[in-house]
Simulated scan of single mutants.
Amino acid sequence: MLLTVVSDRSSANKYLYNIETKELKQLTKTLNPEVASEDLVDAEIVRFKSFDGQEIPAVYYKPHNASSSNKVPALVWVHGGPGGQSRAGYSTSIQYFVNHGYAVLAVNNRGSSGYGKAFYKMDNQNHGDKDLKDCVWGKKWLAEQEYIDSSKIGIYGGSYGGFMSLAGIIQYPKEFAVGVDLFGVTNWIRTLRSIPPYWESFKVALYDEMGDPSSEDSVRLKNISPLFNTDKIKTPLLVLQGSNDPRVLQVESDEIVAGAKKNGTPVEYVLFPDEGHGFVKKENQIKAAAETLKFLDKYLKKEEPKGKLN
């Protein structure tokens, strides 16, 4: 029997199990030898009550150094989608930030997949409202933990999660100390209208969930779009974007950065000319993580730069 095994503290490996001898043999070892598995952390599945009593599931990562005498900063982590799901398992990005002293709460807000049809449809044509409140109440849950510095909690997300990060710092500026937006939607009307013809089935499903930008839904879509609310961005913001992104166009990030800078808000922008929707090249993944850590250390931990990041 050939098995693929992955854990929170180890990337996927192949194993061979001999049914007759009951011998299990590991065939691959994919974790970088410079990374010690014991330095990483196991994920914990937690649930918290949201603003309306709805139970919200989340995947939680607590740094080894967190304690009541050593309070750590934290991130509310929002998945993509809409309708995605954060799951336990090996995440290079999350383990990187946790290893550098940041707690991470990956919230599966209402509308996430994996919890039944009723839960999945709870945010239909209500995005940036109740689903965002779930993330805010996730932040409140973090703040209640005795080893979390409640004044140092940020919000992080990519794609739909990037939209949620922007919406979070716009609608709840006193809740989140920083925002990290990876190729997030800033103008829902433009994004929904720019879906290419070869994504027709995806377009139909997305219009059903988000609304039709060519109908009266456009009023709500404009109201929730961060681009039309840039004057409210007062929170330090990091934006990362791929130039070749066909789903969330570069102009989305260009314009949100320009709008936020008009407020005198600290804004950092990292553009990857050779990436699309998500960063797939290892060197770009490393750069994105390092730039994000540098930003978090400066504006969330509020530490002075320590030189080159490893």
Rank of each mutant, 00 (worst) to 15 (best):
S50T: 08
G264V: 08
Y96M: 02
Y147F: 14
K130T: 08
I195K: 01
D297M: 10
D231E: 12
I155S: 06
D245Q: 05
Q285D: 06
D8Y: 00
K234T: 15
R220W: 07
N223R: 15
E216V: 12
S165N: 01
G278W: 10
S201R: 15
F51V: 14
P196M: 11
R220M: 14
L166S: 12
V239E: 00
K117E: 15
G116E: 09
A43P: 01
A260T: 06
Y96T: 06
Q54Y: 06
E209T: 07
L271M: 13
V35T: 13
S68V: 11
G307K: 15
V185N: 03
H277C: 13
K287L: 13
Q241K: 00
S10M: 10
P73H: 14
A118T: 15
K282H: 14
D254E: 13
A205L: 07
Y269W: 08
S165Q: 00
K301P: 01
E20G: 03
T186V: 04
M164E: 07
V185M: 05
L31R: 12
Q145P: 10
G116S: 09
E175M: 03
F48H: 04
Q145K: 11
Q145M: 06
G111Y: 08
E255W: 00
T30F: 07
A74M: 08
R87A: 13
P196D: 14
S165F: 00
K22G: 12
K139C: 02
G157F: 02
G162N: 12
K302Y: 06
A258G: 05
V59M: 04
K14T: 02
S69I: 11
A260G: 05
E268Y: 11
E283G: 03
L240N: 14
V136Q: 05
G114S: 07
D129G: 00
R193K: 13
E303W: 12
K281V: 11
L300H: 04
L237M: 02
H127P: 01
N109T: 09
K234A: 11
N223K: 15
D245I: 03
V204G: 03
R47W: 07
Y96E: 10
N13E: 10
G158H: 15
D131M: 04
L300Q: 08
K139W: 02
R193T: 12
V72I: 05
D208L: 12
D245K: 03
W199S: 09
S159Q: 09
V98L: 11
P246G: 15
L300N: 01
I189Y: 07
K287C: 04
K152C: 12
S225Q: 03
L27M: 08
A289R: 15
A177L: 01
R190L: 03
G83A: 08
K222T: 14
N65K: 08
H100N: 15
P236F: 00
L75Y: 12
P246D: 11
D149N: 10
L105R: 02
G83V: 10
D231Y: 06
V107A: 05
W77V: 11
N284C: 05
V267F: 09
N65I: 08
M164F: 05
M164A: 14
I233K: 01
N65A: 09
R193S: 14
W137N: 13
A43T: 09
G83I: 07
I256N: 01
N284D: 12
G84L: 05
Y207R: 06
Y115R: 10
D123P: 01
